[in-house]
Design a protein around this nucleic acid. Sequence first.
RNA 1: GGGCGCAUAGCUCAGCGGGAGAGCACUCGGCUUACACCCGAGCGGUCGCAGGUUCGAAUCCUGCUGCGCCCA
Length: 876
Amino acid sequence: MTDTPTLPSTDLPPAWEPAAVEAELYQGWVDAGYFTADASSDKPPFTIVLPPPNVTGSLHMGHALNHTVMDALTRRRRMQGYEVLWLPGMDHAGIATQNMVERQLAGEGLSRHDLGREKFVERVWDWKAEYGGKILDQMRRIGDGVDWSRERFTMDEGLSRAVQTVFKRLYDDQLIYRAERIINWCPRCRTALSDIEVEHSEDEGELVSIRYGEGENAIVVATTRAETMLGDTAVAVHPDDERYRHLVGTEVVLPLTGRRIPVVADEHVDPEFGTGAVKVTPAHDPNDFEIGRRHDLPSITVMDTTGVITASGPFEGLDRFEARPAVVAALREEGRIVAEKRPYLHSVGHCSRCDTVVEPRLSLQWWVNVEPLARAAGDAVRDGRTQIHPPELAKRYFDWVDNMHDWTISRQLWWGHRIPVWYGPNDEVVCVGPDEEPPSGEGWTQDPDVLDTWFSSGLWPVSTLGWPARTADLAKFYPTSVLSTGYDILFFWVARMMMFGLYAMDGKQPFDHVYLHGLIRDAQGKKMSKSRGNVLDPLDWLDRFGADATRFTLARGANPGSDMALAEEWAAGSRNFCTKLWNASRFALMNGATIDRPVPDRAELTDADRWILDRADALVSEVDGLFEGFQFAKLCDALYHFTWDLYCDWYLELAKTQIAEGGARADATRAVLGHVLDTVLRLLHPVTPFVTEVLWKSLTGRESLVVADWPRASGAPADDEAERRIDGVQKLITEIRRFRADQGVKPGQKVAARLSGVAAAGLSAHQAAVASLARLEAPGEAFAPSASLEIPLADGTVTVELDLSGTVDVAAERKRLTKDLTVAEKELAQCDAKLGNPKFTDKAPADVVAKIRTRRDTAAAEITRIQARIAALPAG
RNA sequence: GGGCGCAUAGCUCAGCGGGAGAGCACUCGGCUUACACCCGAGCGGUCGCAGGUUCGAAUCCUGCUGCGCCCA
């Protein structure tokens, strides 16, 4: 072995410090125009529209995961030569934003009504200019390669035009209508909500049974919302229910009010539930509304829009939650309370924005008849135009779109797209398209309400590309390639975008693939929540571990269809990986790793060279397949394993001896080091763009990895013999290390050793490597072997005699051999059991039987060998 | 109430018909000339329970138990 050459320095700093360089790198990429898409390009398109975050939002772990996924997908496609458009933007988040600004006004002692509609909306725009869009800067920090020149906002002029266009078109197609129905009403936000903006939870309440009527005609009903009895207009029973048959058609007196209400028979009453009789409040319950419709009952609204009782009487002016016990108390005083069950667990709807208990309320609203739209949205997935990943979630999608209720789209807000409908003095209703003049003159007024935010964000995949205009962007980049989001947003995003995209684009689906990732949880798999105090902040991770480590952690946890647990240790591990890559690259560069010199012909290469090149080839194929299948966790694991366990732990170590040889061998090694590193950096770049960019520029001297080519497997057949010999080298080294550790030899201490059987095992060329990695030195004149070990390899057994210059720890050696013996005996027993079963040898495939025979023979030989070793050990 | 999913090493998760795996944690030994954010070695599992199918089951089927999610 020659002297170790002094290592040349590189231009890389000794440690990877992400915080120092990330912002500058990112700005460089933006300035270079790498992320700006060209609609006139000849390259095949690859498009992702960012599910627009709320203008009020800031980056949380869920976003960070989704952005990592989208950035990885787009960066890979860009390297593969696609014309990539990743389009960013935000939605105006009607309720959330209006709440935010109203809170701000409240601090000044004002309400929005003090300002008036026009001034209030101006104020919201001011708010947006000053505070909105924090998340856009956070996207830069995480490294999102989005096309900032195409950034959009749902309230932009162009997108507003799209909204008005589609509204008009749907209205003309009679798919938008106005109707008075029971809707979900948030008394705090004072607006209607759609079904999916209501979250149900099992809450404790009280089930009160109330007796209506007297004597023979008495009938008992139960309710958890006693205050609604003020609005009862009937009692309903099942038509076949013998208990109540005599009462159907009669009237009972409604307590507290003195009103007489009918007893009606209705098929939808469940006679098994409770007393089998239900109170009917058509203005405050969806089921009761339906009963009311069937029996032509009046609807009496007993609350105002803030949940305060309006029914005249002692309860007027009380909030619904004050009125509830007050009504019960009054009923009790009249002796009408038959039973009270408390606590009583039942499902209660809450506003998804503010958590206020939703009040079902009779209200005149605008609706979308979703039936034809939802059927088209289902069909696009059914016939494979759009694929959902993972496919298991398609079922959930179908369940939703196939059973979707009509969609309430009007919101009683000021911030949003105002409904383009004018009402005339003689009950005229006119829907106005974007290029039409609204009717003017005495008595004409525009509908005061705005549209659900999802109405505009449902148009996002088409409106951001310029629709309804036939733009070059729309022609080039629609349908989009992938929509990525959490599975919890399936109904919000995917369903609505599918419905509108298909409708607007005459049946052309808005995306080819839908990738649904899991939700982020804490280290124990618990949901993150402020109240639990287990929320992890991606910005904190970006500061402390860097963008690459944050991204790698998230991508590595992204197994399809399942949630991911996260903890700081995960991020620290990824940071360590980046550091490892950094140091390995520095080492390779110090040793002259290069891509400028081609890798020599196979015949000129060592086993180690061929082995690592073959493994790199396999890695490229594996990573490609995993990317195509959205298998982010697995591709990260594959890259991690290759980089750390193969490239660093073995190839770099083997390369040390090859470089020490000098001459052509060293030059060839430098080429292999460089080419494999180049491949790894390219493959890692979509997930960890920053560290790979710095290293790759240093390795290649080229402009940027962002626009480098994606690697391809060479297609050369793998050298199985080289692999078998490297396996042998690894086993030899590992066994010697194990023996040394068992014997308590210090890792750094060199041990004189004599190897025999190396040539027969085919490892003559690898003696220097074994000596180096197992810390062996050549036997000197005084060589006195005190221990020996036999290591069976594929092509022969190598015997290693070691001079431990002292006594051997016989107990440790016996323990080690005994353990090996136990393993071999277990193996033998298992194999014999199988081979002794004629059904196995008859029925199992021949290759399986042959494999078991080989294993049996190997185990038997091992047992013989180890038993001899144990017998030869000195006593004690 | 209806539907779906999950139960594998201390923790988080891969594996989904023929030799129980990874990361982290833990134990032991090391500043071995890229890296202590490291290196080397190791410990650790009747694969939830009970049946069934099969030559063979962590892997397929049925039931049970526990947990989670979605919808009503």
